[in-house]
Amino acid sequence: MSTTPTSSIWRGTTLLAVAAVVLMPVILPSPTLATEILIFALAALASNLLLGYTGLLSFGQGVFFGAGSYCSALVMIHWHFGLFPALLVGILAGALTAFVIGALAIRRTGIYFVMLTLSFSQMAYFVAYTMSSVTGGDNGLLNVPRPPVSVLGFELLSLASPLVFYGFVALLFLAVFVAARRVIHSPFGSTLVAIRENENRASAVGYDTRQFKVLAFVLSGAITGLAGALYALLLNFVPLSNIELATSEHILIMTIIGGTGSLLGSLLGAGSIVLLGDVLSALWPRWPMLLGLALIAVVMFLRGGLWGGLLDLKNRLIRSPEPPQPDTRQKDAAQ
């Protein structure tokens, strides 16, 4: 069976993601750190679906993350939900908040849209802060359990060990990664890119662009909600900062520094920033200043982000015997 170039790129990218996921706990000092990277990689990937593929710069990502954290933690604490139902609640909470914020914010476009996502993000923070009897307010939500993997009440696997929990998160990450690539290469994904490139044209061709944008929001919110729920499980705790604007900014910065429009870039961005934070936060608490500098530098000089930079470097070092043009022609001929 012959494989088309698209599917081989497909496999290469996924293979790289699998390799990274397998290598991380070996190279990194602790599986907990590796887990944190994957959780934020999920969030960055979700933000990438909006920014990189649909062209929507959303400051609401922290809201979906926080909603996923709080809701999954609350149903585990108060109603003793198991692992998968709790994760599902986190996903639904992220999707629902994303639906509400997305549907309201896309009533305006351009900068007004971005401003609305930021203002709604502030609003969500005040909601969490005001409802302190539910969310724990400034103190956060304490004593979040980490239930075992169980099916129909039969306990299959305890996630208490950091390495086992890493494995669990890694499987979920890879599943989402593959699913996200499927979505991007589907007609739905192509429509999102068409909206990013020229919304008027996409709408003139007959697409209901609003509906597509809301769907992109819901998808992004669901993945971010999952990331938030996993983060609550990792920390056994939901800090108020999960829903702060700073979390939205962090997720966005990871996406952009890693490289917009490339899912591996999101993994790279989350990895480098979580690592940088881990190394620097003890030495120099003001390290986020570097993030500000890096963000400016990437926007001014390295639009493709770290991943784009790596690809450029690779292309410069290894001159492939076949230039890229014949490849695309072959693909067109095959189709």
């Binding site: 710069l57 900068i111 971005v114 900014e249 966005l252 200043m289 993030l291 500098l293 963000l295 926007v299």
Partner: peptide
């Protein structure tokens, strides 16, 4: 584009 301006000034705000 505005998106880039937003990101640059977001970086400034952080600094």
């Amino acid at each position: 584009p505005h998106t880039f301006q937003i990101l640059i000034t977001l970086g400034m705000a952080l600094i």
